[in-house]
Amino acid sequence: MQSRDELKQEERRFYVWIGIAAAAHVAVVVAVVVFQLLYVRMHPPLKIVNVSLVQMPGLPGPAGGPKIPEAPPADVEGEPEQSEPVAVKKVSEPAPKAEKKVPEPAVAKKIPEKPPAKAPVKAPEPAPKKPSAVDERKNLQAALEKLKSKSSAEKPETGKSSAASNLSSTLANLQKKVASGGSGSAYSGSGSGAGGGRYGSGGGGAFDPYAAKIAGIIQNNWSFSSQMVRSAAGLEVYVSLLILPDGSVSEIRYDRKSSSEYLNNSVRVALAKSTPFPALPRDRATKGIWIGFVFTPEGIKP
């Protein structure tokens, strides 16, 4: 039988072991903490960069490419007269080609397929100098002026002479309409001018410089990347705007929304950013006009 001394001795041994176990636990915890600290020091944390895929720092619109950096003011002011002729040249260069192509229906059909590939159009330009935003605006204004004068002379095909990149899709669409006999697309309506058909320029197929201008403004404010949608096929948003004479929009009507909520939202944001528009031309400043746009992953079609 165990004596009391033996029991006490065993208990004492057990308490010693408890102390050793507690010390071992503390040592293990300290070792784990130290190991973690060493691990963190040996593997410094990676910097986290939040990237918004929706609002990319590139050009708005389907291309989503890097935004062309604005030229410093000195460059713009230093050679304004030198750049202008270049811009005029750029604008006027494609004009004769377009005039030649319009009568040929086969070529005219091919033209709408070109807008997605904007880069190849720009590449063969003789002046590789990067156009600044100011130059681009000047080009746009010059093109619009030219288009106005030519449209008044009932030559809608000259509207396609604009070389502004953000109008290329618009012009291609116009060419298509002209080639198809001016009857307008299925959705463009058969009315004349801006009254009957909101989408397209109406029965005569006359180019509306104001609509093109607004399309350009919306295009500039439109942040959309076609890479964010699974399939671009069938994605179209039909929007009609009632623009008052002062350029404010009194009504926005979504005639058809796309299945992509991303596209719908991007259109809504683009319209919100773009309004108010420039005032209507004096000759059309009556009650206000309805203008329709079709937003597709390829671009805006008036």
């Binding site: 041994r13 057990f14 072991w17 408890i18 050793i20 176990a21 507690a22 071992a24 636990h25």
Partner: peptide, 14 residues
Amino acid sequence: LVVFSIISWAIIAW
């Protein structure tokens, strides 16, 4: 649980 673990290890060693 930590107390359990300490006592367990002490018993095991003892």
